[in-house]
Design a protein around this nucleic acid. Structure first.
Length: 298
DNA sequence: ACTCCGACCTGGTCGC
DNA sequence: TGCGACCAGGTCGGAG
């Protein structure tokens, strides 16, 4: 499942393979994949055709391609961008036009240089593409409108740990809920939340109102470190023409300490990792290293 | 204003 | 064997 490191791998692939190229045609094979483009498929394809991809940007799990008039032009306020969210199963593939269509091909973008095309493939259609004008954000930067409410992520050079800790401690909920709230800190999903909590020895239901500043720093630092490690591994397994979120999947087999490790011994203390139901999903934790607080939330 | 929860979606797996 | 239940989970909109 793509979280921040996987999306960054995709962003880098797009930077390498589509930035600077002029779009020729766009084909929407499944309308659900552009459902967030309110003006519909014809408007979406019309906004892209003929434009040049200026830069590949990312905030948290959202990524977008700026559209400009000519190669090497810099996008300014009012220029459109193609916004993408990979959802659960979205992939961006850069492939030769004669390679067979994927079963779940949703959107195809061709270029006027006859080079490889860009395909958005998404089995479960939780993800999608849309086009929006770029607008200056209050805190700086040029963002597509739907990204305006998303907080900076830990890989952002302007991310500040203490502000993020204050944001978490301001919430009145369980710690993991706060970590998953993309308006407080972005980029963290179920996998890296569980890994960060395990590293910081904190329980997922810990009430944020009793979290100390030091504990807040510890869990966010852990999240940042585990995502850095995943990116370092995910960025290596990638051939020239294939931009694929699955490139990062090898990380999960070797390096996860908590997520998905139910009944396996904790690598610190040997106690079997437990799985708890959490928000219609799962939380994995070590019952000894991460004891449930008496005043657990939810 | 803040918090919570259901719906969305498909393919693989498991139990009867 | 067949079939239904369940699981994976990020985001949004509406309810409280």
């Amino acid at each position: 499942m793509p979280e921040l490191p996987e999306v960054e791998v995709v962003r880098r692939g797009l930077h390498d393979h589509v930035v600077g190229r002029r779009i020729a045609t766009v084909t929407v094979a499944h309308p659900r994949s552009i459902r967030r483009h309110a003006a519909g498929a014809a408007d979406f394809t019309g906004r892209l055709a003929g434009r040049v991809i200026g830069a590949a940007q990312r905030r948290g799990k959202y990524l977008w391609l700026e559209l400009v008039d000519a190669p090497a032009s810099v996008a300014t306020a009012g220029d459109d961008a193609v916004l993408a969210h990979l959802g659960m199963s979205g992939q961006m593939l850069v492939e030769s036009h004669d390679s067979p269509d994927e079963k779940h091909l949703r959107v195809r973008v061709t270029f006027d240089d006859d080079g490889p095309e860009l395909r958005f493939v998404d089995q479960r259609t939780f993800g999608g593409l849309s086009a929006h004008p770029l607008a200056p954000a209050a805190a700086g930067g040029l963002l597509p409108e739907p990204v305006a409410h998303i907080a900076r992520d830990p890989m952002d050079p302007e991310f500040t740990l203490d502000d993020a800790v204050a944001g978490i401690r301001r919430r009145r909920t369980g710690l993991k809920r706060a970590l998953l709230d993309q308006t407080v800190v972005s980029g963290i999903g179920n996998i890296y939340a569980d890994e960060a909590l395990w590293r910081a020895k904190l329980h997922w239901a810990r009430p944020t109102e009793t979290l100390t500043r030091a504990q807040g720093r510890a869990v966010l630092t852990a999240a940042s470190e585990v995502m850095d490690a995943a990116l370092a591994q995910g960025g290596t397994s990638f051939d020239a023409l294939y931009v694929d979120v699955n490139g990062a999947s090898g990380y999960f087999d070797r390096s996860l300490d908590a997520y998905g490790q139910v009944d396996k011994p904790c690598r610190r203390c040997g106690t079997p990792i437990r799985r708890d139901p959490f928000m219609n999903r799962s939380s994995f934790s070590c019952p000894r290293c991460q004891p449930r607080p008496r005043n657990a939330h939810v």
